[in-house]
Every structure is written in structure tokens, then in C-alpha cells.
Nucleic acid binder design. Sequence first.
DNA 1: ATTCGAGATAACCATTCTTGTTACAGCAAA
DNA 2: TTTGCTGTAACAAGAATGGTTATCTCGAAT
Lengths: 142, 142
Amino acid sequence: MAANSRLTVAVHVLAWMALVHGRGRDLVTSEQAADSVNTNPVVIRRSLGALRAAGLVEVRHGAGAGWRLAREPESITLLDVYRAVEDEPLFGLHRSEPNPKCPVGAGIQPALRQAYGEVEEAARNALGGTTIADVLRETLSA
Amino acid sequence: MAANSRLTVAVHVLAWMALVHGRGRDLVTSEQAADSVNTNPVVIRRSLGALRAAGLVEVRHGAGAGWRLAREPESITLLDVYRAVEDEPLFGLHRSEPNPKCPVGAGIQPALRQAYGEVEEAARNALGGTTIADVLRETLSA
DNA sequence: ATTCGAGATAACCATTCTTGTTACAGCAAA
DNA sequence: TTTGCTGTAACAAGAATGGTTATCTCGAAT
């Protein structure tokens, strides 16, 4: 499939929140974030909703409502974000069950699960090595 | 998107070819492979076509046509297969360009490309650590 | 040269995912 | 009570995926 942009949108929003927080603005709205990402505020709210469920951001309701980082940008890794917004594994197994009468069809799924698990573990470790603060610093250094 | 099953189908076919080759059967057809994977022969041919372009299998045309491994199963890694069947990156960037007037929107794409590149590199390294022979052995050991 | 079994490929379909969008209800601070 | 923003449902467009049928092509064997 085409790779989706959920991780990108979420990291973008968090990095942007870290930037404006550093500038003294505390609460931000989904519309303001949408202006930076160049998308619809509802898309941003969907992303922020997942980030909130993961404890990465906080929301305030009522008049003057908005969002705020719940943790320091230095402590939020891309792995935290990935876990918050993505649930599908990197590689899918068979669409329909393979033939159980074939020795390969019967036993390949556990074998693939193990192999794919090692790959996902490696990817997660790499994601854990970069923080939102890193991304923001790199973004502003260009 | 939902993760696709291209890597799974390709690895399944290659492991199955390694098995039947070990049993002395050299040329196999897409229909036979489709029976093990439990899908349509055309789907198998699409996968084998990509594997052939990568030099992992060979095809013979004409009467008594069929497919054969072009390399030893011990020498084919999941990274070889992945490269053959997948071209999309693991994580997509923005669907529509972020706002260039925002410092984050202006500079985040190179930053993300670098971070994502490190993750892909880690995933590729892990994929390179497993061979078709490994998968087949694990599959048959259950 | 003809036959024939298989690959190559185009075309089409249903399904699903993703993103964008509108609309409206809910909430709490002022 | 007003106000501004979140929460969420609903829907649409577009693309990707996998399955299917149909037709053309190839080349070994006869």
C-alpha cells in the first residue's frame, strides 16, 4: 500500500508545538497546527486524539480551548509517536489462509511472524533513537 | 494503509520452491505455487515476475514451462526479496506540501527523510539477517 | 510446421484504506 | 449565557490491493 502519512503528520504537529511552546505560546488549536501541516483541522484533531490517548499531549476544553505538550520534546521519541498513531504491522501476512495441506502453507506463518518481529524490533529501536527535539533542531538547522 | 502481503507471498513462494527443489522437482508452475499460497496463479506470476527482475528466479517458456530458483536458498535474504517486491518507503511524507511560510513546514521534510532513512536502514539490516533457507527450516520445524 | 502447456499482460472488479470535508453536538472558561 | 474550540459521525474522492477472466506469446516436443 501506499505508505500513509500518519507518523509524519503527528511528528510535524509535535515538533511545531515544541517550537511555539519555546516561543512562549502554550495552548494551540488544531486550526493553527493545520495551517503549518497544510491540511484540514479535523485531520489534526484525529492525530492529536491518538497522541492524547498515548499521553503525549493534553487538551483543554471550553472557551480558549487548545492543546499542549504533556511531556518535554526531549523525552518524546519517534517510537512513542509511532506507537500512538500506528497499529498495523509493517508487513502483512497472507490475505487468505495458506493451504494447510502443504508443509509450507501449514507452517510458514509462525516462521514469518518471528522474522517480521525481529525486523519490527530493529525498526522500533531505530525510532527510539530520535526525539521530537532532535527533529525540531534538524528542521530549523536547514 | 493496511500492510500489503507482497513480501509474504514472495517469501512463501521462494520457500516452497526451495522445498520442492530439495525433493528433486526442478521446474514448478505458477498454478502449483498458487495452490500452496492459496491464491490465484496470476497473483503468483506477478510476484515471480518481480523476483525474476531481481535475478532471484528464472523462468522457462514454451511447453513444459515453469520456474526455478536462480540462487541457493541460503544465499537469498529477506532483504533481497523485499527489494524485489517493494518500492514504497515504510513511512510516507506529507500528502500535500506543508506550509513553507512556517519554519517547521519549511524544513521538516529533510529532517524526516533523514530520520526515516535511519529506520529503514535498520529494518533492511534485520531483513538481511534471515534467508529463505532459514524461513524454510523454521517453517518445517513446527 | 503444428501442437500444446505454460507464462505475460491487459482489463476489470470489489474491497479497503487514507485523507479531506462538512456538520453538529459537547464542553468549560470568561 | 456566550463563545470558541474540541469530539465525532458521516460521507466522498482517490488510490492501492488482490482476485479474476481473457487473450496473446513463447518454445519444446512431436
